[in-house]
Design a binder for these strands. Sequence first.
DNA 1: TTGTTTTTTAATCATTTGTTTAAAATGTTT
DNA 2: AAACATTTTAAACAAATGATTAAAAAACAA
Lengths: 207, 207
Amino acid sequence: MGKASGPEKALSTEQKIKAAATEVFARKGFAATRTRDIAEAAGINLALLNYYFRSKQKLFDGIMLEKLQTFFGKIGPIFINPETTLENKIESFVSHYTDMLIKNPELPLFVLSEIRTHPQHFVQSTQISPLFNKSSFVEQLRDKNPEIHPLHFLMSLIGMTVFPFIAMPMLKSIASMDDDTYTMMMEERKNHIPQWMNALLETKIKT
Amino acid sequence: MGKASGPEKALSTEQKIKAAATEVFARKGFAATRTRDIAEAAGINLALLNYYFRSKQKLFDGIMLEKLQTFFGKIGPIFINPETTLENKIESFVSHYTDMLIKNPELPLFVLSEIRTHPQHFVQSTQISPLFNKSSFVEQLRDKNPEIHPLHFLMSLIGMTVFPFIAMPMLKSIASMDDDTYTMMMEERKNHIPQWMNALLETKIKT
DNA sequence: TTGTTTTTTAATCATTTGTTTAAAATGTTT
DNA sequence: AAACATTTTAAACAAATGATTAAAAAACAA
């Protein structure tokens, strides 16, 4: 019943399971994924899943934690740093997130979908709330344009950056576009969005 | 085995089931929803679900079709109309969608999540693609600023409008915000987004 | 009322699905 | 090689779940 302590082959199957599970969970979500799907995708015997990870839920939790860190991990260090300008932060945010999302296009929909199922649990575990309030990002925003609520700006910035990946199947179909062309557009947005966000910041809002 | 033809009470239970199913499906997704959940939420006997709607899948398909029409239905008439200006279209889009999403906050995540599972089927059924290409919206966009690809603009517009609802649980937690305050911010965006999109349109993109 | 159709119920079925078990296979140590 | 530990496999289990059935209850028509 003991966990494997041998290094090569043991880790290899464990990693095969985790890699397959990551792919299937991301594509179908937790509930629609059967342990047999994962076993087949990994090319391993069904019982090995429970041998290495005690249950489907535990396997999922581990993967979800990694995904949450990938998704929320970049935002903190960028926004907290008082050494960089607001413009730097915006550019850095868009650039880093676009790169990461090109590599993991299904990440936002997966993370946000599963957050919906267990709202309090996942959002707490990221501890992003205090991080945001204390950030120099918010300070610099208020300094530049006190009229805009920081959350409005954040919604727009994240929305412009992340939404194209959430709606990719829809938007690709609308414009009859293949994967490469879509990726190219995302690269373009690394350049466009910071300039747009700047224009947005300079706008005097009329009622 | 026949379908009910009597009007009042028959429709009443049928509607109870559909209403309950709509709520539970939207909250948990198709796979995580059990027919027993729906029966309990509707306060009816389990077998009635199969009596009125032949299967869980058929019940879901009917509801999904309605949701897709709600989600995609407004965009067509607004964008096609050659009588209105570009500014009118943007204002109208933001206003109509914000109102609709305030009433159905869970709609985008639900629709986009299920599209992920059956990509080609749902996107085709909306027939939004030809609608977009022929629209006077695209024409007016190219006229105003030929440098911006219409899809870039559309991504930004939809992203700014819809994303705050997709990420609501996350964003509410970040800013420690209650439902009413959040709704108020969405109302504010009906005013802000058109002005921001205008600023975005006037921006000369530098490489 | 009586007969007929429609709706509702409780029980059951057949599959699916997460998990466990016991034994076989493989690897490691002495 | 022998003894022991780890990994893998095939089979089975138990619970959950979508669906069906047959009978009861209710609504309706004559």
